[in-house]
């Protein structure tokens, strides 16, 4: 799915606009940074409710190119500055995390593979 389609489907507001033609293969939605780091694929999209600079740092580590802040939560100035420095695109959605994920999934965007998934009871 192209970034321009995602922007259109979700009605996103650009904070740092990216290349419209950027191809997004997979997405993940998380508010836990270690959960984000458990995702393994490249060139993906992160949906999150967290707005601090560590979100950008976390994205940088696994080459996430686009971050969407859900539920209308605006990122901190330091977050935007760091994203600009690192070449990460930022968007804002008024919709909830659940709704954003549902819409993207319905439109064919695939979930990410997770490194080390634990089934309940596995550790017993």
């Amino acid at each position: 799915m192209k970034l321009i389609d995602i922007v259109e489907i979700l009605g996103l507001e650009a904070i740092i606009a990216g290349n419209d033609q950027l191809e997004i293969m997979t997405a993940c939605g998380a508010d836990l940074m270690s959960d984000v780091l458990a995702f393994t694929q490249e060139k993906s999209l992160l949906l999150t409710g967290l707005t601090n600079p560590q979100v950008v740092r976390t994205a940088e580590m696994i080459d996430i190119k686009v971050i969407i802040f859900v539920r209308g939560k605006r990122p901190l100035v330091a977050t935007v500055e760091l994203a600009r420095e690192k070449g990460i695109y930022l968007y804002l959605s008024a919709r909830s995390m659940f709704e954003c994920c549902g819409i993207l999934y319905q439109n064919g965007l695939q979930p990410e593979e997770i490194n080390g998934c634990f089934s309940p009871g596995e550790e017993e």
Binding site: D31, L32, M33, S34, L37, A38, Q54, N115, G116, F118
Partner: peptide, 28 residues
């Protein structure tokens, strides 16, 4: 153990301290 954490609420609010740090370190 996944999920075990001694982090403070303040740290958790930042998206850390979910008890997955060492788990990720081991996995990668």
């Amino acid at each position: 153990q996944p999920g075990y954490s001694t982090a403070s609420d303040q740290v958790r609010e930042m998206g850390f301290g979910a008890g997955l740090g060492l788990v990720n370190i081991k996995n990668y």
